[in-house]
Computed example of a mutant assay.
Amino acid sequence: MLNLLNLIRWKNLLMIALAQLLLKYALLEPFGIATSLDGFGIFLLIFATICIAAAGNIINDIYDVETDFVNKPHKLIVGNSISEKTAYNLFIIFNIIGVGVGFYISHLVGKSPFFSLFVIISALLYVYATYLKRTLLIGNIVISILVGLSVLIVGIFELLPVLTLENRAIQLTFFKIILDYAMFAFLLNLLREIAKDLEDIDGDYKAGMNTLPIAIGRDRTTKVLFVLSIIPIFLIIYYVVNSLYTDIFAAGYYIFFIIGPIIFTSIKLFSAKTKKDYHFISDLLKLVMFFGVLSLLIYYFNLKA
């Protein structure tokens, strides 16, 4: 069971589930925003999302056996504790369940075309694992878009089906907030994907992949990563200055738990040389993403106060 949980990356799936739950119950529900999903509906949306994400993680591991054998042999699951055939079967099962539940939810909210989102996400995760991740930057961008979409999909299914002329302004205001979080997830995941490519350069090179560190070298990629890390820092500072300057607690949270760690990451890049250094940077960015998810609670507590 533990091997299966590690195969589907249960910690990442929990973060997706937490983000979607907080969007529903810390951002939308407390403010009385019109939504299309009840408690069971949001459960189904979360279930569909994590099933498709789990399938994506499985197919990624299947096609990563060669690189993982070099990069992290102690964490190799497919072909070791779980056979490749079993992994393929699990990939198919999770996909069928996720897409099937997505089909039901789309009809539940009266927007059957939304079903195509689940099919597209499932297909892109397969194409990413089998081809795109071997291409220069495209794989990094695509997987980061899908991470952002796991956030945005809540706004798509909760707000758009009940959009009317009367509530248009408030619905779009909250949709923009969710879009901002999706952009934040995209940017941080893009940074993390590049950091992981720096960490895994040896195995990726032996597998014939064309990641950014292989194409332009580790030093240049580190500089690119530093420049990219500046973008979320300025965007979040802009948000804090323009939207949270009167809220000391919220501003403090963003400064100490999000802006500060990203700045630390940028500084750390100057001295990063080893696989261990890049692994630390990757883990730190993941922690920032977690604090970013928890920042949704600020809306809830501010309302209660």
Rank of each mutant, 00 (worst) to 15 (best):
L28W: 02
F291T: 12
I230C: 05
Y299I: 12
F94L: 11
L294I: 13
Y25N: 10
L14N: 01
G148K: 05
K206T: 04
P161C: 09
I216L: 13
I153S: 04
K24G: 00
R218T: 15
S295W: 09
S112V: 14
V293Q: 05
I143Y: 04
G217D: 08
S282E: 06
L296A: 01
S229K: 12
I143K: 03
V154K: 04
T164S: 15
V101S: 02
I97K: 07
A215K: 15
P261Q: 10
I201S: 09
V127P: 00
F290C: 07
L37S: 04
Y25T: 05
I121S: 09
P213R: 12
R168A: 13
F184Y: 13
L117G: 11
L45Q: 00
G79A: 04
I177R: 12
I59S: 07
F257I: 08
I58N: 03
L124S: 02
L179G: 10
I82P: 05
F175V: 02
T164R: 15
L124Y: 02
V151F: 09
P30W: 07
I259E: 02
Y88H: 15
A34N: 11
L188Y: 11
V293K: 02
Y278T: 14
F118Q: 08
T130G: 09
D61T: 04
L228A: 04
F301V: 14
K286D: 08
E158W: 01
V70M: 06
G217A: 11
D61R: 06
V70W: 09
D38G: 12
T265I: 15
F257C: 08
I248P: 00
F264S: 14
I233D: 07
L191T: 05
E66L: 08
G217K: 12
L90R: 04
A53G: 03
S116N: 00
V109G: 03
L14E: 00
G139H: 04
L5I: 13
D283I: 13
I62E: 00
M209D: 00
F280D: 02
L165N: 11
G155V: 04
P232G: 07
F226H: 14
D64Q: 08
Y239Q: 12
D277L: 07
P232R: 13
A87M: 11
S144P: 05
T49K: 08
R220K: 15
N3C: 08
D64M: 09
V99N: 07
L44N: 06
L285R: 02
P213W: 07
I96K: 13
L132Q: 08
L285T: 01
H74N: 10
F290H: 13
I156E: 01
L28V: 02
I121D: 06
S229F: 11
G217P: 05
Y104M: 12
P73T: 02
L163I: 14
K24S: 04
G148R: 03
K75G: 01
G252R: 11
D200I: 10
K196E: 06
Q20C: 05
G79L: 05
L108G: 01
I156A: 01
L297C: 06
E29C: 08
S106E: 10
I145S: 02
R134P: 01
V78Q: 08
Y254A: 12
N302C: 02
L136A: 03
G208L: 10
I105N: 07
D283H: 11
D283Q: 15
I263M: 15
